[in-house]
Design a protein around this nucleic acid. Structure first.
Lengths: 219, 219
DNA sequence: CAACTAATTAAACGATGAATTAAATTATTG
DNA sequence: CAATAATTTAATTCATCGTTTAATTAGTTG
């Protein structure tokens, strides 16, 4: 059994020809490799060759499975990214009072980040950054379901007198994302900056809820 | 007077040879062109040729002024980016009580963003994103001056009983950035998403202060 | 006014790396 | 054994990139 080794040290045990079966499903592994590259380097900066290298495979194989680069990207978005984002929506019970909705959102983001740790970084680069490759798809397929619904909920609560009237209902949606997605995306930074390896998901959640609930005041 | 026109339609009035004096200082304009490219496309994705195109100049001229690409980047960071970030520090009076410090921070970020509208987008791409070109420089030269000082201030206030004890002093620094930088960076998104062209800098500031002060509660 | 220096473009150089395709190779299936 | 499926190798074609050299023109100095 011959094994060639690439310059980077990655093992490439394959020789030409059909592999000896019993290999686990390759397609999902290719999607995962592509996603890893997108998260690490950004979608625009990721070449087919980089994905192939990540997966221990040749660019020609990616072409065999997905056609061209655009179709591969599309497959990753549909089968990996959108489901992760959409899972947040299923955690939001828009029926209860404001405190319940906010707590569900904060907890939901925490749960989603725990299950898909790559999501905050990808979100920042591909949605928040101008020119990001996912901005369109998120704005057309996610935004109408989550932010719009939240803003409407907050506006109604304000009319009913159960929400601080000095807040703007639309900006409150932005604030909630800033208090959840931003800390998640910047976690590597503040963990090292503050030597905060002691702060876990539960501490973060409690802090965020406390801030939203009462603000800075002691009373 | 001959004027050639590039494919993109930009006027390129120059022919070879030294220009007829009285031209405004070129070097700052080159720095501004580079900054504009960095903000629009990201530092890593910006080529010398793109900067030259933006400035209406040849790549060779950039080399004449700055040497190689790395030195040009360094000049932009030192003479454009770091001063903008550092200007925030000068707006923070770390002497007063917590409410004053927080109000100064929120107002200071607003003022800095107003003066340097490109800063949030650049921050997101080059500091928040993993692999960002400014992460190192911000972590070593900015972070020790602003975030560390704020966290210390908050911890002290908590010991004195003048700050909500359920908060984490370090996470509060993260929360404050999430409530200021994140809304600034995502403004183009939520403005179009919520048809919120009516929300200006003052409304945003009032909302943020209200949220930090009392949270969601009506009382 | 002649020589020199400063600022600028034009053009070329040499690397690099990209996406895609064609052909060869091997294993499985019928 | 023939046909098909899955894979690599290698070639093709194309686009930039950063940098350098040489030419060109305007100002400066003696």
């Amino acid at each position: 059994m011959k094994r060639s080794v690439t310059r980077s040290g990655a093992v490439r045990p394959r020789t030409p020809g059909r592999p000896a079966a019993a290999s686990p499903e390759l397609r999902p592994r290719l999607l995962d490799a592509a996603l890893a590259c997108y998260v690490r380097d950004g979608i625009a900066a990721t070449s087919l060759r980089a994905i192939a290298r990540e997966a221990g495979v040749t660019p020609a194989l990616l072409h065999y499975y997905f056609g061209d680069a655009a179709q591969l990207r599309q497959a990753v978005v549909e089968e990996r990214v959108l489901p992760a984002i959409a899972s947040l929506r299923s955690m939001l019970p828009l029926g209860g009072d404001v405190a319940a909705v906010v707590a569900a959102f904060v907890g939901g983001v925490g749960a989603v980040v725990e299950r898909y740790p790559w999501l905050p970084a990808l979100w920042v680069r591909e949605v928040l950054c101008e020119g990001g490759a996912l901005r369109d798809v998120v704005l057309t397929r996610i935004a109408p379901q989550i932010p719009q619904a939240l803003a409407a909920k907050f506006a109604q609560a304000q009319r009913e007198g159960t929400l601080n009237p000095d807040l703007d209902p639309r900006l409150l949606v932005v604030s909630m994302m800033g208090l959840t997605l931003f800390p998640a995306a910047s976690a590597p930074i503040w963990r090292s900056l503050f030597q905060a390896s002691d702060i876990g998901a539960d501490t973060l959640r409690a802090h965020t809820i406390a801030l939203l609930d009462r603000g800075l005041g002691v009373g």
